[in-house]
Simulated assay, not measured.
Amino acid sequence: MRVGLALLLIVMTLSVAVGCKQKAAAPPSSDAGLSVVTTLFPLYDMARSICGDKATVRLLVPPGVEPHNFEPRPDDMVTISKAGLFIYTNRFMEPWVAKLISGIGSKQLTVVDASAGLSLHPAGADDHHEHAGHDTEEKGHAGGMDPHVWLDLENASKMVDTILAGVVSRDPANRSIYQANAESYKKRLEELDLRYAKTLGDCSSRALLHGGHYAFGYLARRYNLDYLAATGVTADAEPTPKRLAELVTQIRKLGIKAVFTEELVSPKLAETLAGETGAEVLRLHAGHNVSRDELARGVTFPAIMEQNLAALAKGLQCRQ
């Protein structure tokens, strides 16, 4: 009996081990042999658009998961270690990257900081958005810097160039294909940027009031909007009663007609503010991540930004 039990335990252990290996394995390589792993959805969308069918691109953060507090699991580390290219946003969005890369120690892995060369801003600290991010119960994350650089479409275009350089460094033979794909993607971003500037340049209100964490600072700065957020840059922070009272006062004082909420986060704060003031609740999508359904439908980052423009035009009462 004891021998039989021991054999059974050994078989079960081996089965679990094999199952773990299968779960952690990187996706199958493309014909080009290049495997790319990205952290956030905008990077994933940029990389898959650049690579086309010449590489396998994987989104590390599971769909539907709010990424600010994401911590990679052991099988994620295995996936990254088997990739040729790993792309992350910046050290403020993914503070765990440095330790993870040090732990992997693979000389075969090319690591790309997609925000390289961009100017990052403190969350809510500049005088044009002086109301945002103050008097919350948290002090920001990763030094209080705002990591959401991709929501400035000019930044997004530069990030495409940075990702392109990383892809080409691993697969120079397909340089011309990658460059053409990147230019096509950038053209869509540039056209969208012009539409944002035109639409948001003529609105009844310039106050973007967000009942959530400080995610849309770069977008507001790009299009000269006054951004008021309920909390700082940590997605699960709770505003103080004082902060909520300040926002209610601002809504009434400025005649704000819409309070914006965001994806993958409870709309409770926005609904509370709207209930106190009679404002409408509208959704903005910061693009950090997407739901399983959105991923299955093939949603793109530019499409998300198209939806955001429509919501902003409605909420700010823009004359299109």
Rank of each mutant, 00 (worst) to 15 (best):
C318N: 10
F86S: 03
F260K: 07
R283H: 11
Y88L: 06
S266W: 02
P63Q: 05
D31A: 15
A55E: 04
T136W: 02
L282S: 00
N289G: 01
L194I: 10
A313E: 13
G52I: 01
E306S: 13
C51V: 12
D226N: 08
D193Y: 10
N69H: 15
S176P: 13
K257C: 05
L14R: 10
L192A: 07
K107C: 09
E306T: 13
N289F: 04
R175N: 10
G144N: 04
I50M: 07
A229F: 02
A24H: 03
I251H: 06
T13C: 14
K139R: 13
H148T: 05
L269C: 11
M93V: 08
A182R: 05
Y218R: 09
I80V: 15
G232N: 11
W96G: 08
Y196C: 02
A286F: 03
W150C: 04
Y185N: 02
V167Q: 08
K314P: 12
A17P: 08
K82Y: 06
A279L: 14
S169A: 15
M77Y: 06
P27H: 09
W150A: 05
A25W: 04
S176E: 15
K54V: 06
H288V: 04
T162A: 03
L34I: 15
K253R: 14
D126R: 01
V290N: 00
G143F: 07
V290T: 00
R243G: 06
D75N: 03
R188C: 12
A311S: 14
T231H: 14
Q317S: 12
G105S: 10
L200K: 13
D146R: 01
K99L: 15
L208H: 08
L316Y: 00
D171A: 15
L264A: 09
L208G: 04
M305I: 03
F86R: 05
L9W: 07
A165T: 13
N308T: 11
S204V: 12
L151P: 13
I256Y: 03
F216V: 08
F41H: 04
P27C: 07
L194V: 11
A47P: 15
E190T: 10
G144M: 02
N308D: 03
A270N: 00
D202C: 03
